[in-house]
């Protein structure tokens, strides 16, 4: 490839960076709070709630993300053509538009849903570990000082949990950057998609190499960001 072609390719791929970042950003936006809720549900004293949550986490962590993406994506068309589908659900699903621009929106939403459900399970396990690592004495001290349960959680426990879960979460988040490439399997137009396409056009490995550099740079930036955050939070032990 000539220098000019490489530059052209770079600018082209840059346009596909946005969809990658969009999937990445929205997954984090939803998966982190959901993960916290799932963690609390798993620690819930009501046994059936805890068991169901455990089952959910087991399935999400026990099956490939790619499989989950495909299942979620095809769930709507498959369910509504299924004879056993309840009427109200079919009516609901019939409202979902799968063609044209609406189809693109549908695709993004379904891929996002799969990512969020999967990543929330991983975050939940990290958060649960973090919450359980807080010494009982912190709850007792807070209780003695009259803090309510809610106040104790948000003022005393959560800030300490955040610090504890950052190393494990950063691992997960860096993995997520690279996992966004799985959306390529559904035809979602992100970096991997364009790289594969340009590879055929140019009969060259350069587009794939360039995609690798994109992921590498994003992962490295995140690594730097997290080591900065860890340093920021090291003012207490």
């Amino acid at each position: 490839m000539t220098g000019e072609e490489t530059l052209h390719l770079f600018l082209l791929m840059l346009q596909y960076l946005l969809p990658t970042l969009k999937l990445f950003g929205f997954t984090l936006l939803y998966a982190i709070p959901l993960g916290m809720v799932v963690a609390l549900l798993k620690m819930c004293r009501i046994k059936p709630v805890s068991w169901l949550t455990r089952l959910y986490i087991l399935i999400m962590r026990g099956t490939p993300l790619l499989l989950q993406i495909i299942v979620v994506y095809y769930s709507v068309p498959t369910l509504r053509s299924n004879a056993h589908c309840p009427e109200f659900l079919r009516n609901l699903l019939n409202h979902v538009e799968l063609k044209g621009d609406a189809g693109d929106v549908y695709m993004f939403r379904m891929i996002l849903l799969a990512f969020v459900l999967n990543y929330a399970a991983y975050f939940a396990e990290i958060f649960r570990g973090g919450i359980e690592a807080i010494p009982k004495g912190q709850y007792e001290a807070a209780g003695m000082l009259g803090f309510s349960r809610i106040q104790t959680f948000f003022r005393i426990i959560l800030p300490q949990v955040v610090k504890r879960v950052i190393p494990a979460s950063s691992n997960e988040i860096i993995t997520l950057v690279k996992d966004t490439s799985l959306a390529y399997a559904m035809g979602y137009m992100e970096i991997m998609y364009i790289a594969k396409k340009q590879m055929t056009t140019y009969s060259s490995l350069t587009p794939l190499f360039m995609a690798g550099v994109f992921y590498f740079v994003m992962a490295t930036l995140l690594t730097l960001l997290f080591s900065f955050v860890e340093k920021k939070l090291s003012y207490y032990k």
Partner: peptide, 24 residues
């Protein structure tokens, strides 16, 4: 408490003022 149970993420001052401000 025997092992203090101070809140590690708060300054000494905030350890003391947190309850009077938030609870009382």
């Amino acid at each position: 408490f025997q092992n203090f149970n101070l809140f590690p993420h708060m300054t000494v001052l905030r350890n003391i003022t947190e309850a009077p401000v938030c609870v009382l």
